[in-house]
């Protein structure tokens, strides 16, 4: 069994320092190309591949009249009216709704998943392995009838507790949190395992309760993975529309993804320009969040479950 003396290096990894020793081999020589230069080539090629399809979206968002995939003349016409029009629609209302739902769900997922991971990582109880496997297997159930079933549940609950019924933001968050355990727990579980038990032990000897250990020590030590799970959960709920469009009904309560989906679902005269502008702006919070959290992600994801 693994008893790590120190959590896996996350930031300022010592391994990186070792490479710097060789860094003096002349900036643009053959050696540079062999060791570093080609990496830039790969990077540029990949970035182009990543960006080209998105140019269509951006081009459509700037095109006052154009189609979505009808023309390969990107940026033939450029104007800002689609963005201006967003202000006249319910877009910002939806944006706010989405933000609230995604942030709340992300926070809830992090806390609930983290708590579960703590339990699996720190306690030994019967059915523990079975429970872990079950959590993962449950996620693999084909969701064909999920929407049907969820709607029925919410109808039933709504009769008793109206604010948890259909057309409720709170209910939507509850549904999302129903999926909080699962892959996320697994991800965190691996990371929790890398936090040495000696830390718990020491705290326990100092008289800390398990709750104090969890809230004040462990959560702080695993903050990178919390950031990662939070980000993944944010992205997932921010873009989710299949459940959301069934749960939410009033135009003012829709989330961004549902609103955009409805714009795009007009078979014949979909406002692609408006839709694209909305999608471009919708990607911004995700990218910003990623930039903010990148240093955690680079050090965080799955780092835990590797046992040196």
């Amino acid at each position: 069994m693994s008893v790590l003396t120190k959590a896996a290096p996350r930031e300022s990894a010592p391994r990186e320092d070792r490479y710097t020793i060789r860094h003096d081999a002349g900036p643009r020589g053959v050696r540079w190309w062999a060791e570093v230069g080609w990496r830039h080539v790969v990077g540029i090629v990949m970035v182009v591949i990543c960006v080209v399809p998105l140019l269509y979206v951006i081009s459509a968002s700037l095109n006052p009249s154009g189609t979505f995939t009808g023309s390969n003349r990107l940026f033939g016409e450029v104007g800002w009216n689609n963005y201006a029009e967003l202000f006249e629609s319910r877009y910002w209302r939806w944006f706010l709704n989405s933000f609230v739902v995604a942030v709340t769900s992300a926070a809830g997922t992090v806390l609930m998943g983290g708590a579960a991971a703590y339990a699996f990582s720190r306690f030994r109880f019967s059915g523990r392995r079975g429970a872990l496997t079950t959590l993962l297997l449950v996620q693999m159930f084909p969701q064909m009838l999920a929407v049907v079933a969820i709607f029925l549940v919410l109808l039933t609950i709504g009769d008793v507790i109206p604010i948890l019924g259909t057309n409720s933001t709170l209910a939507l968050i509850a549904v999302y949190l129903g999926g909080a355990l699962g892959v996320n727990t697994f991800l965190m579980y691996g990371f929790f395992n890398t936090v040495p038990r000696e830390i718990d032990e020491a705290a326990k000897i100092d008289g800390a309760s398990h709750a104090q250990i969890f809230w004040t020590i462990i959560l702080r030590l695993v903050s990178p993975i919390l950031a990662v799970v939070g980000l993944l959960s944010f992205i997932a709920t921010f873009g989710e529309f299949i459940i959301a469009k069934t749960v939410l009904q009033s135009p003012d309560r829709l989330t961004l993804a549902v609103g955009l989906y409805q714009w795009a679902s007009d078979e014949r005269n979909a406002p692609w320009g408006l839709f694209s502008a909305g999608a471009v702006l919708a990607a911004i919070p995700v990218v910003v969040l990623f930039l903010l959290l990148q240093k955690y992600i680079v050090g965080g994801l799955t780092a835990g479950s590797v046992k040196g």
Partner: peptide, 13 residues
């Protein structure tokens, strides 16, 4: 929450 939603989906299906 898992029981309320996920499991119900499975049972219903």
């Amino acid at each position: 929450l898992l029981l309320a939603f996920q499991l119900f989906v499975m049972l219903y299906t």
